[in-house]
Design a binder for these strands. Structure first.
Length: 273
DNA sequence: CTATAAACCTGCTGGC
DNA sequence: TGCCAGCAGGTTTATA
């Protein structure tokens, strides 16, 4: 589930709680969680590291460690990071644990085992994230820039929005929500959008992501924040998984299509092809 | 480049 | 009530 909004919210919580903390040791409960190296190497490198900062790029959470290293976390579909006090029992589906020297633990849980943790030297970061498109909440993500990008894309807009190399961080929920807010049909060719539509889409992307972050993310299935709480953004979702429910704007039942192996939800009246 | 399908995994839901 | 097909917030890889 975790898209940009969910990752950003947890990144902010981590920044408030663990910057300055020291990782005493790591324990890997499911080896496949570690990407790019063996769990043994991972645990060796991470032991004793100080967490100097927390950042995010797209859906990737970055824990900046001392000695110019970085810990990357991608939660994919069902991964969660939670911070627990000493003595708290482990959570179900625990895949990795970072023990802090003060006794707290950062738990990585992930029922479906799709998520990954990896370590890299800081100067490899740009290379590792090289395929990601612009950050939609950065000041340089302007409507003009979005227009320039979309003008070169031949595919349908829904698929283009999900492509992380086009824009970083949008997933199925916020792509559907942005298209709904902008009143653009998900099957519209990306390069067919009129300037006014691109402008609406640009504002919609920023709007739905900002709202999502403000409410702690959207919890439909498993997303939880750093303290195990569900996000409250579901009440602000107007299209995603609302098939058959009335459109907020016109009352037409929300429809569902499969586009590029993903479900797409939209209002057939407000979002004309 | 674009599109499509399958794979990676497990759990939950809805329909019969 | 019980079982099973289908679906799930993501990404990568193979194939056409």
């Amino acid at each position: 589930m975790p898209e940009l909004a969910e990752v950003e919210y947890v990144a902010r919580q981590l920044r408030e709680s663990v910057v300055g903390a020291v990782i005493d040791r790591a324990e890997i409960a499911w080896p496949g969680t570690i990407a790019g190296m063996s769990p043994a190497i991972f645990t060796t490198i991470v032991a004793g590291a100080t967490i100097e900062g927390v950042e995010r790029r797209g859906k990737v959470l970055l824990m900046l460690l001392d000695l110019d290293r970085v810990l990357l976390v991608h939660r994919r579909m069902t991964g969660n990071l939670t911070l627990v006090a000493p003595g708290t029992p482990d959570e179900p589906y625990l895949r990795a644990t970072l023990w802090l020297t003060d006794g707290r633990r950062i738990l990585y849980t992930d029922p479906r085992k799709f998520g990954r943790l990896t370590l890299a030297p800081r100067d490899h970061l740009a290379n590792l994230l090289a395929d990601l498109g612009p950050e939609p909440l950065a000041p340089d993500f302007t409507a003009a820039r979005l227009a320039a990008i979309l003008a070169t894309k031949r595919g349908v807009i829904k698929t283009v929005l999900l492509n992380q190399s086009v824009i970083a961080g949008l997933g199925n929920i916020y792509a559907d929500e942005a298209l709904y807010a902008a009143r653009i049909h998900p099957l519209r060719p990306a390069d067919s959008l009129a300037p006014a539509e691109v402008k609406r889409l640009h504002a919609a992307i920023i709007g739905v992501l900002t709202t999502g972050i403000e409410h702690g993310g959207t919890t439909i299935g498993r997303h939880r924040d750093l303290y195990g709480d569900a996000g409250a953004n579901l009440s602000h979702i107007r299209a995603y998984r609302r098939t058959g429910l009335p459109c907020d704007r016109c009352g037409t039942p929300i429809a569902r299509l499969v586009i590029g192996q993903r479900s797409a939800h939209f209002c057939p009246t407000c979002q004309k092809l």
